[in-house]
Amino acid sequence: MPSLDYIKLDQFLKQMQVAASGGQAKVMVQSGEVQVNDDIELRRGRKLVNGDRVVVAGQTFIVDLRALS
Rank of each mutant, 00 (worst) to 15 (best):
S31I: 10
D10M: 03
L65F: 05
L68F: 08
N50C: 09
Q24S: 10
D64I: 14
G32N: 04
D38W: 10
E33S: 12
A19F: 06
A19E: 12
M1C: 11
R53M: 14
P2T: 01
Y6G: 04
G51A: 07
K47M: 10
M28H: 02
Q11T: 10
L48H: 03
F61E: 03
T60S: 13
V36L: 01
M28Q: 12
S21M: 05
T60Y: 05
S21H: 08
M1Q: 10
V56A: 02
F12W: 03
Q15E: 15
T60M: 12
I40E: 02
N37H: 05
L42M: 15
K26M: 04
L48D: 09
R66K: 15
L9E: 00
D39R: 14
D52W: 07
L13G: 00
V36A: 11
D39V: 12
L68G: 01
K26S: 03
L48M: 09
K26E: 04
A19K: 05
G58H: 11
S21I: 06
L42G: 07
D38F: 13
Y6A: 05
S3P: 13
G45F: 09
V55W: 00
S3F: 09
I7Q: 07
F12M: 01
V34S: 06
D38L: 14
L48C: 04
S31Q: 11
A57S: 12
L65S: 03
Q59S: 15
L4V: 08
A57R: 15
V54C: 08
P2L: 14
G58K: 06
M28D: 01
L42H: 14
V55T: 05
L9N: 01
K47I: 08
V49R: 11
L9Q: 00
A67L: 10
E41N: 06
L48K: 04
Q15A: 14
L48N: 10
D64Y: 01
V29M: 06
A25G: 01
N50E: 00
A20R: 15
A19W: 05
Y6F: 14
N37Y: 07
L42T: 13
G22D: 07
N50A: 02
N50W: 00
S69Y: 15
Y6N: 14
I62D: 13
N50V: 08
I40V: 11
A25E: 10
